[in-house]
Design a protein around this nucleic acid. Sequence first.
DNA 1: CGTGTTCCTGACCAAATGGTCAAACTTGGC
DNA 2: GCCAAGTTTGACCATTTGGTCAGGAACACG
Lengths: 204, 204
Amino acid sequence: MTEKQPQTRIQRKNTAAILEAALDVFSQYGFRGSTLDQIAQTAGLSKPNLLYYFPSKEAIHTGLLSRLLDTWLDPLREMDPNGDPISELMGYIDRKLEMSRDYPRESRLFANEILQGAPRIMDAIEGELKSLVDEKTTVIRQWQDEGKIAKVHPYHLIFSIWSLTQHYADFDVQVRAVLGPDEVDPFPEAKTYIDTLFTKLLTP
Amino acid sequence: MTEKQPQTRIQRKNTAAILEAALDVFSQYGFRGSTLDQIAQTAGLSKPNLLYYFPSKEAIHTGLLSRLLDTWLDPLREMDPNGDPISELMGYIDRKLEMSRDYPRESRLFANEILQGAPRIMDAIEGELKSLVDEKTTVIRQWQDEGKIAKVHPYHLIFSIWSLTQHYADFDVQVRAVLGPDEVDPFPEAKTYIDTLFTKLLTP
DNA sequence: CGTGTTCCTGACCAAATGGTCAAACTTGGC
DNA sequence: GCCAAGTTTGACCATTTGGTCAGGAACACG
């Protein structure tokens, strides 16, 4: 998948800087709306130097996306089928919200890609992501059959968790604008609200 | 604001075709990722002809956005302070979900604009949109004080309605990919799920 | 210190992009 | 059927964009 380990210090530093800059730019403007010059400038490198480390604009984007998906699905992966249903689900929800708080650019990068029809990650979505969701919805269905949580549509439950948590990353500027300039950090209240919402929904 | 009425048939037809095509393109690729050639081709017109009707790429985009915001806020405007709280809120939620089903491109256009930092509609968001939300959250707070609906954070309640309903437009390809090829239309189940969710949340 | 490897850059290229314009073509109303 | 107004277009332009390349600079390491 990724390149082999033997990298020089400079290589590691610069590829990291490039991916960091690319995340900034791609997450805001999407693939087609972003330019190499912009990424180069943000990374503090020259454009030809970018292309020394990555063969093309697309390669940078792909590099970002592949790194992203793994960490992105981690919170869901961690949901333990043998744990307490409510705590497991609430734990997943909280981890997902924390990711929106701590990695908003990653969330936006993903959103941008999906908005454009997911041309570069459709495979991963239909494969890796769908498999994981299929697996976890089975667990949820089991919990429901055991009467541990309320019977709601498992797939839409997942969708609602994604949408509610990612909203605070993807629509951050709107959230802040509506809440007004006094509200410094919307996340604490968001957490309380979302916790209430899912507790009421899932308690049998 | 908009141009004066006296338009020829051709003008009306072509500006409509351009806005229609531009909605297709802008909603998918965002402002910077879209090209005039693409819009022109989609509209079945030549590029110079586009620029006969609109002075610039930006003007087309602005034209779209200003038309959008009005219709976009209509469902919330319709929420009647004197009606039954639960029915009014559920009605709003249902109307919002219907808009995601019937006007997904508009939803994506909006999402794209927000993702990019809302450079072209920040004014409207801080003004028109915020005012309306402020007004309606006041109503919600009143309903809560009267014990008609559960006490949850009014602003985050609005955010959650937006995020849940718009998710089915903005992340449509992901939703369909995860649900698999059998599921033709996710909206009926989505409606049922969302109705359940907010009923449980709002019932005191 | 020397030398092979890695890293970086300025100059360059072809294609794409937003936009202009004069000239040609349609259209509508008399 | 005429003509002024409205409409369309091909040719053109400056700038931007993704990408190349030859050569120079910095580095690693014996």
